[in-house]
Each structure stands twice: as C-alpha cells, then as structure tokens.
Design a protein around this nucleic acid. Structure first.
Length: 587
RNA sequence: GCCCCUGUAGCUCAAUGGACAGAGCACCUGCCUUCUAAGCAGUUGGCUGAGAGUUCGAAUCUCUCCAGGGGCGCCA
C-alpha cells in the first residue's frame, strides 16, 4: 500500500541529499507515532551521524533536524501526501487521509477473507504439534502445543506456505503397558463412559501408578506384559489397539471442539522399529558408539564435531537392553517425514522448551549422518503452562486441570453471560456463542504472549471475559456485525470526502498494517503479533463506536462509515481466524 | 561446572534499535430514552533487576554481575 509513492519520495529525497553532496545514504522508514493523523517517517540521525563520521563538525541531533527541515522545504508536498513536516530530526510525510482511507477500505472489502494473505510461495512446511499420550489424561498443560501449533499452522498457511499439520501421539511406552496391566487385572471387559472417555483413561492410568507404588513387587507383572507386547502377542496387540482407539476418539472430540485438525498422524509405535534401524546405520557409519551390553548406544556429538567446550554433549539413542528411547524414535520420525514429503522446506516441531537440547542433538546427529535435510528441521520451543506457585502440571502428582473440565467450565460460564445479556437468542445460538466465547477465552491467553514465557493457569483469569481477552475482540466483531445488519449491508462504494475522526484514521492505520503483521508473525513464528493486532483493532473499534455514529450519520458519511465498519469487521475476523478463534455475529 | 529462558506499573503482559515505555486486571469517580454497558471516559500507578560498553539514539544489541525457572550419557 502506497509503496509506489513511498519509492518516488525516497528517490526525490536521495536526490536532494546528493545535490547537497551527501552520498550513499539509506533511508529507513517507519510509521509516525499516532497523533491524530498518520503517515510515514524517516529519521535523519543516520545521515547526520554519517557526516560526523566523515569529519564534519556537527552535533548529530541538531544536524538531523537541519537536514530534515531542508529536505522538507525542497521536497514540497509530493503526490499522494497531504503534509510534510520536519520534527525532532524526523521527516514526516502525512498521507492524504482520504486517498489512503479509500484505498485501504476498498482493498479490504475487495479481498474479504483473503485480506492480509501473502502470495503463494510454493514451499511446503510441516508443523508437528500436540503430541498427546494415549492412555493418559489430556490436561491444560498439553493445550499450549495444540493451540500454538494450530495458530502457527494457520499463520504460515495464510502467509503463503503449503502447510502439513502433523500429530505425533505417544501411543506406546511404559505408560501404556502400565495402563494395560491395570485394565487386564482390575477392569477387564470394561468400557469407557461415552461422555468422559479421556478422564476415565487418565483415571485408570493414575490408578495403575498408585497400585504399583503401593505394591512395588507387581512391577514384575508389568515387565512381563511389556515382554509380551515386544513379541507382539496377539492378545495384547489387540487390546492395545482397542484401548488406544478409545483415547484417540477422545482426542478427536476435543480437537473438534477446539477447531484443530491434522493432515497426518505419526504414531510413536510406527517409528519404534525404524528407529532401531537408524541406530544400526549410525553405528555402521561410525557415528554412534555401541557400548552394549554394558552400556547404551551413544553419539558423542561434541567429540565428533571436535568441539572443546560442551555444547551438544552426548545423545543416548538406544538402551543397553535394546529397547527404544524417545531419541531412537525421533531419529526415525525425522527421516520418515522427509521420505513422505521430500520437498519439505521446513520441518517444525512445536514442543516444550525442556526438550531444546534433545532436538539439537537429534538434528545434529542426522546432519552428521549425512542427511542434508537435517538442517531444515527446527524446534519451536514454548514454555509450560503451570499452576500458581510455579507448580508443574503432572498427571502422576495429580496437579492437573483437565482440558474437558476447563472447556465445560468456560462454556457454561459463557452461556450464563449470554443468558443474561441476550436472552432473546435461540438456544442453539446461545450454545454456539457460549462455545465460541469459552474456547476463545481459553485460547487467547496462550497466544497473546511470547512463546518463551510461562503461562500461569488460574481459574479466575481463565474465566475472566473482560478486558484484554478474546471475548472483548469478539464483542467488537459482534457490534460491527450488528451495525451492518441494521444499516442494510455494505454499500458497494462510497467516496470519502469528509473529515474523518481520529478513531477512524487510527482504525484505517491498524487495518492497513495487518498484512505486515501476518508476515512478521510467520517469519518469527509468533502468533503473539496477530493477537496484539486483533486486540488493537478491537480497542480502536470501541473508540470509533463511541465517537462516531454510523446509522444516524448524514450521507456521505453514513456510507463511508458503513464501509469502514465492514472493513474493520473483516480485519478482526481474519485476525481471529489466524488465532483459531471464532468471530460470532451475535453474543 | 556448562548451556538455555525470564526479569518492564501492586498483579498479568505489550512495545520493526527511534519521538512522551503502553494495555488489561485491581482500586477510585462518572456514563445505558442514540448503532449490544462482555462497553466507554477519567483518576492512581515506572531510575525497564544492577553496572559498564556499542550507537546520533538502548527495555531492545554486547559483556560482567544479581534473582527466578529449566536442561545436561540409558525419563518422555
């Protein structure tokens, strides 16, 4: 937007500077801090500093202001701009408000749900996220990877990538065997209750741990069961498949409610044996050292890389008893991904920060093994969701908030508010609104902060629908929708030839920045930027709502504002969409 | 011992190296015969953990400390 004008002006400015004998300068453009109007700004400090470095006796801030003033004088008022000023060493170019507003609104309404979308890059990326364990509870701590990964996927897709969403459930391992042992011995033939499958699965797992703690001698039974699994005893395999499906069914239901989907499922059990093959290969290539049976199979990364200080340390890739570890499977999984999708431009892993070293080790090991794609693997770390007092959520400790409880609480609380605020809605509408608001309220706090910051979960904050939260943004969308309904839809066109109020200008400014925010969020892999953009839009729309009557305004203001409302509504909807949050029409 | 992350208002968090560091929550005061009050306006609140350095300019980059959290050869 206004790129052409900007480039023309830049060329003129550089020419003016050249005429003054100032060569080789580069202008850096930013936005003028909002002060009632808006435009672009370039600081002249670097130019003045360059002169100073070349031996000229100048005080940089003063000289910068001088230069800006001189340029402003010579430049006049270029096409596409309304006003030029030199202030505090900056050259500020104010856009022609009407022209700019017109362009922004026209563009948004023309592009609709595609507004802000990047051009297609024809680059395939995979995002692996939400690695839930079957036969265990699904708690709020597991939610961040799911929500973050989903949003990152949406953002990358919108930014122009072809995204493959991968899930990697932990469907095998000691936890599963313990569960099976408990089930076979104490719950044989039972089925999970239809409405609380995941909770029941989690309860049985906790029960298994309890029993084993109370009677450690029973561990031998678990080990025996593991051995039967290893030999693929049909009875065990069949039970495993059946019970695993119960968990997966529960997960699917939660993903559906959360509006999260996957293109492919890689199961832990799929890469157990391939992992062992990779280990053999690494041994043969001389990368891994086989210390069996006294020790495990290890990769001495720092030694292989000739590093003097410890960086990658040592990676254990197979236990001394030949059983697979997490690392064993991750080696095979990475390989599998690139064999399924050879053209992957990037392979992202949305996994908590505690596994940073682990992923560095795995990727480096694969790189040493000669897999050129290993450098295309990237871990996206995020911090945990803790309980107040920095208590980590752990199913074994019983310090968990189950996702299903949170969803139920949030939606019922939202339903309560809808009943209060909008009793005339149909029951179906109320339910839909409650779901949108409840889920939005859950997702937003996990996205509206740096990935590397801990989220502290507490019920009060989670169920607070006021202020900087998803419902506030949704509410702005609802109000905009309401105005458009009552105003008879979106006028097909409207010339802006009236003086706009500050909030109108600021709205247009925010809307016009959205495409850049999308690109930024995509390149930094941070939904935070979108969350901020959405909130800013909603906040400014609230200002507008109070400052500028729409329906009662005279023409042509009425039509102009209706189109601005429509454009804002679209921008908010697009932003919320990238966060995986619904934008309701009523609430 | 080595490595990573975090430190900004009472609390939770923002801030492409740029103009007076901004929101929300909480507290207090107002505003529903005008488009949904899940809202708005106003009041209060800061030596950006400390110190140096780089820069015209640092919450942001570098270094040294301090505090908290996390990770470091057979857990996932």
């Amino acid at each position: 937007m206004f790129e052409a004008e900007k480039q023309q002006v830049e060329e003129k400015i550089l020419q003016i500077l050249r005429d003054k004998g100032i060569q080789d300068v580069k202008l850096t453009w930013g936005w003028i801090p909002f002060n009632g109007a808006w435009g672009i700004a370039a600081p002249f400090f670097p130019v003045a500093a360059q002169e100073a470095r070349q031996g000229k006796n100048v005080q940089v801030p003063i000289r910068a202001q001088e230069l800006a003033e001189e340029v402003a004088r010579t430049l006049g008022t270029p096409a596409g701009f309304e006003r030029v000023e030199a202030i505090k060493g900056y050259l500020n170019l104010y856009f022609s408000s009407r022209e700019y507003a017109q362009r922004v609104i026209d563009q948004v309404l023309k592009e609709g749900s595609a507004f802000g979308k990047g051009t297609r890059l024809n680059q395939q990326v995979m995002v692996e996220f939400s690695q839930p364990n079957t036969h265990k509870a699904f708690h709020v701590g597991h939610l961040r990877s799911a929500i973050l990964g989903d949003s990152i996927s949406r953002i990358l897709e919108f930014a122009g990538y072809d995204v493959i969403r991968a899930n990697y459930p932990g469907d095998i391992g000691l936890h599963v065997i313990k569960w099976l042992w408990n089930y076979m011995k104490f719950h044989a033939g039972e089925k999970p209750p239809a409405d609380a499958t995941t909770r029941w699965m989690g309860d049985l797992y906790a029960e298994a741990n309890r029993r084993l703690e109370e009677n450690p001698e029973l561990e031998s039974e678990v080990r025996a069961l593991y051995a039967r699994w290893d030999k693929r005893d049909p009875e065990i395999v069949q039970l495993w498949e059946e019970t695993r499906e119960w968990s997966l069914q529960g997960f699917r239901e939660m993903y559906k409610i959360l509006d999260i989907h996957f293109d492919i499922y890689y199961f832990n059990s799929m890469v157990e044996h391939p992992g062992k093959e990779v280990v053999e290969e690494l041994i043969q290539k001389g990368i891994a050292r086989d210390e069996r049976p006294e020790g495990p199979v290890i990769v001495k990364l720092d030694e292989l890389l000739g590093l003097n200080e410890e960086k990658y340390r040592v990676l254990v890739i197979l236990r001394s008893d030949n059983t697979a570890l997490y690392a064993t499977e991750d080696l095979a999984l990475a390989k599998r991904k690139f064999s399924d999708y050879p053209n992957l431009h990037r392979s992202y892993y949305v996994v908590d920060v505690r596994q940073s070293l682990h992923f560095q080790q795995v990727f480096k090991t694969l790189e040493l093994a000669g897999y050129e794609w290993a450098t295309r693997c990237q871990h996206i770390p995020y911090e945990l969701v803790n309980l107040p007092g920095n208590v980590v959520m752990a199913s074994r400790e019983g310090t968990v908030v189950l996702l299903e409880d949170l969803i139920r609480e949030a939606t019922s609380r939202a339903l309560q508010v809808v009943e209060e605020k909008n009793p005339e809605l149909t029951p179906e509408q109320k339910q839909q609104v409650a779901q949108a608001v409840g889920i939005g309220a859950i997702k937003y706090p996990m996205l509206a902060r740096e990935n590397t910051k801990i989220v502290t979960f507490d019920w009060q904050t989670a169920l607070d629908f006021n202020g900087q939260a998803a419902p506030y943004i949704q509410y702005a969308h609802v109000r905009a929708s309401s105005i458009l309904r009552k105003g008879g839809g979106i006028p097909t066109e409207a010339a802006i030839n009236y003086a706009m109020m500050p909030s109108e200008l600021q709205l247009i400014d925010l809307i016009s920045r959205f495409p850049k925010e999308v690109q930024r969020a995509a390149s930094e892999l941070k939904p935070l930027h979108i969350a901020n953009a959405a909130y800013e839009l909603a906040k400014t729309f609230s200002d507008f709502y109070n400052e500028c009557p729409v329906l009662t305004a005279e023409e042509p203001i009425r039509n102009g504002r209706l189109r601005l409302v429509a454009a804002t509504r679209q921008a908010i909807a697009n932003a919320l969409g990238l966060l995986g949050i619904h934008a309701p029409e009523v609430m």
